[in-house]
Simulated assay, not measured.
Amino acid sequence: MNTSSLHHFRQARAAISFPISRTITHAITHALLATLGLSAACAAQATVITFDGLIGLAEPLPPAYTEGDFTVTPTGGNWLQAQTFGAPVPSVYVADFHGAPFGGLSVTGPGLFTFDALDLAPGLSAAGYEVRGYKGGLQQFSLSGNELNTGAFHTLLSPSRLAIDTLSIDVSGAGPGSINVDNIQVSAVPEPQAWSLALVGLAMAGLAARRHGHLNGRHKG
């Protein structure tokens, strides 16, 4: 092959390989960006119910209080809004200064979620608690115990990472006093289709990279 022919061959090969390489590179870039975007969306699902939307002072907790995508519903006891005590304020509480306070809360979301933690603070007397997670009406886990009156909030950590659709929180005092609840932390479980799309994105990136390597090999040959 003479110099002129070799020059034309190289130009022709460049004209073919550059657009293919650019197209493959763009495909890989878009696939990876889509995958990273979905992964970030799937990972950033944690919600802390801080009760910051409550502005009443010792007023009843609404029948359904929504924060983010989650709803807190009183299921027992006389729950009130606390604007002078919280971690930080506000929080919610039940109180009985003649008998023993008791109360129940239910937390639900738009789909499945996990329970991470909550803050609990008994006042004047010790308090017992039971936190249960349900899925389809079946109990998935239970966390129970007693907290002393220390004048401060204590964080209860979840014993399980099982996905649930309902979180039940029950508290009861050992004597006259109050029980405050704050910072209920839950994490939404990503929908299966979100993970499927992320896997498809990874597969597309791998296929594009493999095809790019194969084409390069053919051109070199």
Results as ranks from 00 to 15, higher is better:
218 R>Q: 14
5 S>I: 13
31 A>W: 11
71 T>H: 02
194 A>I: 13
191 E>H: 14
201 G>L: 01
86 G>R: 12
194 A>S: 13
3 T>K: 15
163 A>N: 05
148 L>D: 07
41 A>M: 14
13 R>P: 00
211 R>I: 09
36 L>E: 14
40 A>I: 15
88 P>Q: 07
120 L>H: 07
12 A>R: 07
23 T>N: 09
1 M>N: 13
203 A>Q: 02
166 T>I: 12
210 R>N: 02
19 P>S: 11
200 V>Y: 00
62 P>C: 00
108 T>K: 10
12 A>C: 01
80 L>T: 10
177 G>E: 02
158 S>M: 01
68 G>P: 04
113 F>E: 00
106 S>G: 03
119 D>N: 13
157 L>P: 00
189 V>L: 05
165 D>N: 13
144 S>L: 07
42 C>S: 14
180 N>S: 15
199 L>P: 00
82 A>C: 10
112 L>Y: 04
137 G>N: 12
168 S>Y: 12
126 A>I: 02
97 F>S: 04
210 R>H: 05
92 V>P: 12
49 I>Y: 06
189 V>W: 03
170 D>K: 15
84 T>R: 08
169 I>T: 10
206 G>R: 06
86 G>V: 15
149 N>K: 04
206 G>F: 10
114 T>H: 01
59 E>Y: 05
9 F>Y: 08
123 G>H: 12
113 F>T: 06
91 S>D: 08
185 Q>G: 02
209 A>P: 06
122 P>D: 02
4 S>P: 01
32 L>N: 10
89 V>Q: 08
47 T>W: 00
217 G>C: 08
181 V>W: 01
184 I>W: 03
14 A>T: 07
55 I>S: 05
90 P>Q: 11
153 F>R: 04
202 L>Q: 09
174 A>H: 05
116 D>Q: 12
141 F>H: 13
139 Q>K: 15
41 A>I: 12
47 T>C: 02
79 W>M: 09
60 P>I: 03
131 V>Y: 05
54 L>C: 09
164 I>L: 04
211 R>L: 11
51 F>T: 11
54 L>D: 08
135 K>S: 13
186 V>D: 02
58 A>Q: 06
7 H>I: 11
153 F>S: 08
170 D>F: 14
221 G>M: 15
29 T>Y: 05
145 G>S: 06
4 S>M: 11
7 H>P: 00
193 Q>D: 08
45 Q>A: 11
164 I>S: 01
166 T>D: 06
23 T>R: 12
94 V>G: 03
30 H>N: 10
19 P>R: 12
